[in-house]
Design a protein around this nucleic acid. Structure first.
Lengths: 333, 333
DNA sequence: ACGAAAAATGATTGCGCAACCATTTTGACT
DNA sequence: AGTCAAAATGGTTGCGCAATCATTTTTCGT
């Protein structure tokens, strides 16, 4: 066999019809043991691999799910992806992944491209899709899961947690620990970061006594290095009065901590630091960093399970699933 | 239009033939401005998205490349992936990604599955593929790139650097700085980690004076937490004589550093620490950690470019590409 | 041992698109 | 205006598979 073998070639080797080979590959229980063995051997012998395009075209089932994340470099989405991949594999689903770089327009283009794969379902991050993207998704008539945050107007299904409430609670935590002039540093300023900041502001507004607060943000991508820079900017802005920093994520928090050490600022003595996402390092550094934990792996897993459960059925509106979060108080506050 | 529109539907709306619509989508220069505008509007109006399966079947071009990495949780592969995705997108290539969990058998199954997508090329991590996997890849007759490490017997193309030499050079660096009883801690113990360890041992063997050395390894997945545990094991094994630790990667190194701080060991005074991969944090912690930098993003980028360059042409054996590495000496040694 | 039902197997057809070749239209030149 | 080449457009067909329906074989009860 020089060229790539197809069903017929395998059938000839096994001495059966093409459709029997097809059945062995899709549902072996439908074929007698005798033929099945012959076919399986012929498959191994020829190194046959089913042509996905032809299979998808004939059956109108692609065995693919589409996933769009805003960034490949943010480790947070990695954990979600792990949950997605680990759940997809045993269900014989291929994942086609796109990175939209936090841009709704890029996301729209990706959605258009990925829908061409006739995915059985699609998982999106956040709820900031363009109108045309929403139109395409509705037209596609496949299950859609919006992940990470909660929204009032989901396209279809939704699972996540409230970044506003998490930001609110974390700020309250700082206030309860006695910090009265807190700052917020934020990078990227994507919708979820903005919700955290909104939570920060609301918590301050709700606090019985008025507090002075400081905010330093940038739309640059987040990184530990940037955390150090933003900390400096915050200290400069507040003329050193700032006594606690709420970092919009743990990368910034780690960078801020390392920078504070370089400036000989005691943490939390001179300045408290807290982050968001509860990365592994946050629990290991000295001092360990207070953060917000959420079930990222689980969200990915559940998203795939939701797609599987919804596949084929008509859309029935399911209430958004709130997976919650947890403030992990540590020595840095 | 209730059901999903196909080429014919769009053609009818635009008042042209189906094949003209197809041409507008694949090569707009082949169609006159007048018709192109009509068609493009009809596409927008109907929300038409080309059926990838049918397109791939008819043209025998899938526009897909397959990528297999050993782990989604290891941030190192993320950077490679970024290079891959960023290069694939402008070339209209979809990436289908698989995670083989460092298992050649899982990798074999993944290869079989992914080849079913008729990818235009495939990118693999390392050079430990099974015989059957190699057979499948040769049968598939598509460009293959083996990434990250160098091998004498590449399946097709190969780009990476020598982990043995990097491990060797890093160990020499420790010896040159005066450390005489170095230890090595390693997790996962995948082929590349083993090559680094082999480099460590060879450098010690080549050193003029005999040195005592210590090794602590585990096949558990790598993590910062594990780095702390392995440091403790190493110190116990060496009864505190160990004066430097070569960590097989920066996650372990960071964990080891944090653990040393908790044990009140001065770094590098009581014990030097170095890592591998040069993650961002390694340059920011106090003291900053000596590490091995490599062009991960670039490797991913180049791998895709190599696939593109090789597409369609018969395989001509190309010499493995060595992207090299760099020892970044910092305060921890 | 016979017939009916169930299980196993096979033949035909169409999924939606692009390759291929045929036809029509346009444009350049005499 | 007439001719011819080039550009633009369209019709037909097959890619490889699985759905559907048709046929054959097996199984089981009596």
């Amino acid at each position: 066999m020089s060229r790539k073998p197809n069903l017929k070639d395998v059938a000839k080797v096994a001495g059966v019809s093409a459709i029997t080979v097809s059945r062995v590959l899709t549902d072996p229980t439908k074929v007698s043991d005798k033929l099945r063995n012959k076919v399986e051997q012929a498959v191994r012998e020829t190194g046959y691999i089913r042509n996905h395009a032809a299979s998808a075209l004939a059956s109108s089932r692609s065995g693919v799910i589409a996933v769009i994340i805003p960034s490949l470099s943010n480790i947070v989405f990695n954990e979600v992806l792990q949950g997605i991949y680990q759940t997809a594999r045993p269900n014989n689903l291929q994942v086609v992944l796109g990175d939209c770089h936090y841009s709704p327009l890029e996301e729209e283009k990706l959605i258009a491209t990925l829908l061409g794969q006739s995915p059985e379902g699609i998982i999106l991050t956040g709820a900031a899709q363009t109108d045309y993207a929403r139109k395409l998704l509705e037209r596609a008539d496949i299950p859609v899961v919006q992940l990470m945050e909660l929204t009032d107007q989901p396209i279809d299904m939704n699972i996540g947690f409230s970044h506003f409430h998490a930001g609110y609670d974390m700020t309250k935590h700082l206030l309860q620990r006695g910090y009265r002039t807190p700052g917020f540093i934020g990078a990227r300023m994507d919708p979820r970061t903005q919700q955290r900041l909104a939570g920060f502001r609301q918590a301050l507004a709700d606090w019985p006594q008025p507090c002075q607060s400081f905010v330093q943000t940038t739309t640059q991508p987040s990184s530990a290095r940037l955390g150090g820079q933003l900390l400096q900017a915050l200290i400069a802005e507040s003329a050193g009065k700032c006594d606690a920093v709420f970092c919009c994520n743990d990368d910034l928090a780690l960078g801020a901590l390392f920078e504070a050490q370089k400036m000989n600022l005691a943490v939390p003595g001179d300045i408290a630091i807290c982050g968001f996402n509860d990365l592994e390092s946050s629990s290991l550094v000295n001092p360990s960093i207070t953060s917000v934990a959420s079930a990222r792996f689980d969200m990915g897993k559940q998203a795939v399970e939701m797609l599987l459960a919804a596949a084929g059925k008509p859309r029935k509106s399911i209430a958004p699933i709130d997976v919650g979060y947890q403030i992990i108080a540590r020595r840095s506050t």
